[in-house]
Simulated scan of single mutants.
Amino acid sequence: MRVPVELDPDVDDEAPTGDTITVYDKRHYVTYLRLLDAKAEGADWKEVAQTVLHRDPVADEFRTRRCWQSHLQRAQWLSREGYRKILEQAVANKL
């Protein structure tokens, strides 16, 4: 089953955890890339949360920061380890 990647989707309060690639992950690849780019550029987390995650750090700073941290951690996992699973799934789907 192919899952469409969305360019600017809304996000859950927390990103998935664990060592499997989820449907949520597949839909949020662009979100994860944007978070990694922002981190590399040293962007302010509040601005990133508002722009990328559609969260308001002024209205609920704790919840927004937790959301940002969760998604950034997932993005970092995907870039370090999870990408291997993406490749394995792609190969398996070709067989």
Rank of each mutant, 00 (worst) to 15 (best):
Y24L: 07
R2Y: 12
E47Q: 15
K46H: 11
R27A: 04
T51N: 08
V11W: 04
D12W: 08
P4T: 08
V23R: 10
I21E: 00
A15T: 03
P9E: 03
V48S: 01
E6Q: 15
A40L: 10
V3K: 07
A43M: 08
V30I: 12
T17I: 13
V48D: 00
P16S: 10
K46C: 08
G18D: 09
D12C: 12
A38R: 01
V48E: 00
P4K: 13
D13G: 15
T20G: 04
Y29D: 11
V23A: 12
T17F: 09
V3Y: 10
E14K: 12
D25A: 06
K26N: 10
D12T: 07
A43E: 13
L33P: 05
G42D: 02
A15Y: 01
G42F: 00
T17A: 11
V30E: 12
A38N: 00
V5R: 15
T51G: 06
V5M: 14
A15H: 02
D37E: 15
D12I: 04
D10T: 09
V48W: 00
D44S: 06
G18Y: 05
I21F: 02
A43W: 02
E41N: 14
E6H: 14
A38V: 01
P16E: 04
A43S: 13
V5N: 12
